[in-house]
Design a protein around this nucleic acid. Structure first.
Lengths: 139, 139
DNA sequence: AGTAAAAAAGATATCTTAATATAGTTTGTA
DNA sequence: TACAAACTATATTAAGATATCTTTTTTACT
């Protein structure tokens, strides 16, 4: 019951970017160093975010990534879906799943309840909420 | 962000057992067939549950597994911890974790909030809630 | 045009979870 | 006490998530 590494890395990247003035451009390799995420893996992650529109990528020299919208308009739940796909906390919650094991499984109701509350909780956060500028003595 | 297969299988087994009169004994191989869980994998799961006291195992001929307590006294959260260990939705929530990536990471507050609500939700359920007898026309 | 810097894409390797297989131990019963 | 039925323990394999590496494509600048 953990978030994936990809989702953690994604938030680290977006959080960092959200702390700078709108339109700021970031190079993957610089980003990787600052947020301590494996460079190549970060590449995949950023590509995926760019496809979804959360990031905008610019290729070639002077290229890089920047946020596609203001942090307050980027929801954490939305990010989650882009990175991990639909939120289904058990495989029996997947769309179209047919259960062979039980004709009247009451766990389904529980899964649904838990999943709903998780979804609702994720939807209360935006990137802005976790992306305020740091005030650190040393760094 | 899924539960593990082991946790799903565990609940299937316990749910099934909870539907029978207290003290009923179940053989692993029978159980495996009914709840459609791989026999050997179920073996490990049941052993683990037996170690924790949620189940009681009896070896030898006529042996098997039975619930250690009444379903209403077995909490879903408790089962979760036995199967998957402490609930930490991100590795930075693990006990003793020291973050190198950020001096003031606001995501931590979000993770804690989400984790608390998940924990609270799990604690509202007991085995009894998901273990009522079936009323199925065909089976 | 040529070169260097950057992202994109695809192939490969590693590590953890899930599943299987095999041999070992305990116990009831004839 | 011998045997078979059950749980126990350990080792091996498979699958999926995580991470890396290499090549290709795009673009700015000289």
């Amino acid at each position: 019951m953990r978030i994936t590494r990809a989702f953690d890395y994604t938030l680290r990247a977006l959080m960092h970017m959200g702390k700078f003035p709108e339109g700021s451009v970031f190079m993957r390799s610089d980003l990787a160093k600052v947020i301590l995420v494996p460079n190549s893996f970060l590449g995949k992650i950023l590509q995926n975010l760019a496809k979804s529109g959360i990031l905008i990528s610019e290729r070639g020299k002077k290229g890089g990534f920047r946020l596609g919208r203001a942090p307050k308009d980027i929801g954490i739940y939305e990010i989650f879906i882009v990175v991990d796909g639909p939120l289904n906390i058990n495989n029996c919650m997947d769309k179209g799943f047919q259960c062979e094991a039980s004709c009247d499984c009451q766990a389904t109701h529980m899964w649904q309840d838990i999943q709903n509350s998780l979804e609702a909780k994720l939807k209360t956060y935006t990137l802005a909420d976790i992306s305020k500028a740091d005030f650190c003595a040393v760094k």
